[in-house]
């Protein structure tokens, strides 16, 4: 089937007489609507996963890239002196927006998940932590390490690179996986519609024979099938997207804290992305049916 603007316009406008020449019901009709709906439902989740992973990757990347920690590992009588010295070094280091030593209460809260609330910090050799917030341009970690080594021997700088990179990389891969899943789902829609269109054409061989006998062109015959499958894929996909969005809407939320399981969903304009799915499914169905019809009509006599 040749595709041009005229064909597309005729397809969108429709022709109720032409629409009637193909029997209205049949197994392939329900199959197409159901499969498109199911695929769109899955695609909504794939997109939700992908967009959520993207947000997570950005959040982790941004937040962790802008923070660093200094541990002061020193004898107890030296700890306060070295902490003050480290803060002085930090105050004169370009690219650092703020730096502060965590209080005992904050350190206790950090350790609480492992040691409980009643941990006597003064009886343990717990290093003092200094939280650093970097300015937008960032700071020179290597230079800072050298200065700390010279001026504060017990200070160890951790700029989070070691564990930030794998996390961001994992989130990015998950995002890629989500998009790949969405693409595979569209591929499955194309395969399914092609099979259904082939089955419909074979089941309606008599209809094709009659139409040919009375002077129908291949384009006319193909169009009758293509339009029908396109509309079915659109309708099924639209239903699947609506159900998928409702399901995503009711998924438990983790609030503003980015995390994997509780963060799967859409935010802001992200809710509009799945609305494209019915149109993409319809386009995929249109191309797949046009291909299938063109091939089948060349072989059907």
């Amino acid at each position: 089937m040749r595709f041009d603007l005229q064909t597309l316009r005729a397809m969108l406008a429709g022709d109720r007489h032409a629409d009637r020449v193909v029997p209205p019901t049949g197994f392939t009709a329900q199959l197409t609507v159901f499969a498109s709906g199911a695929m769109a439902f899955l695609a909504v989740f794939a997109l939700a996963l992908s967009l959520a992973s993207g947000r997570l990757a950005e959040a982790w990347g941004d937040e962790l890239a802008r923070t660093a920690t200094i541990r002061i590992v020193a004898p107890e009588d030296q700890r306060a002196i070295q902490t003050t010295a480290a803060l002085e070094v930090l105050s004169t280091t370009p690219g650092i927006a703020s730096a502060r030593a965590l209080t005992d209460a904050e350190q206790q809260a950090l350790l609480a998940p492992w040691f409980g609330q009643d941990l006597p910090l003064d009886t343990l050799p717990v290093p003092r932590l200094i939280e650093i917030i970097a300015a937008d341009q960032g700071f020179d970690a290597t230079g800072l390490r050298l200065r700390l080594a010279a001026e504060v021997p017990g200070a160890i700088l951790d700029d989070h690179v070691r564990w930030r990179e794998p996390l961001v990389s994992a989130a990015n891969r998950l995002r890629l996986l989500g998009w790949t899943a969405a693409l595979l789902i569209l591929g499955a829609v194309a395969a399914m519609v092609t099979l259904a269109a082939n089955a419909a054409l074979a089941a309606n061989a008599q209809v094709v024979a009659v139409l040919r006998l009375v002077g129908a062109t291949d384009r006319y015959i193909a169009q009758a099938f293509v339009r029908r499958f396109t509309l079915r894929a659109f309708a099924g996909s639209a239903a699947g997207v609506v159900i998928g969005l409702i399901a995503v809407w009711f998924m438990p939320s983790g609030g503003d804290t980015p995390s994997f399981l509780t963060g799967i969903g859409f935010q802001g304009t992200g809710w509009l992305v799945p609305l494209l799915l019915p149109f993409i499914s319809a386009l995929v169905a249109l191309l797949a049916t046009a291909y299938a019809a063109g091939r089948a009509l060349r072989t059907l006599t």
């Binding site: 008599q206 209809v207 006998l213 291949d218």
Partner: peptide
């Protein structure tokens, strides 16, 4: 071309012994 033949069939009426119709119309 195939479509040319389709056009010509509009100028040729054909009746077969085993007539086929669109049974749903």
């Amino acid at each position: 071309e195939r479509d040319d033949i389709a056009m010509i069939r509009r100028k040729v009426g054909v009746v077969h012994q085993d007539v086929q119709f669109l049974d749903h119309l």
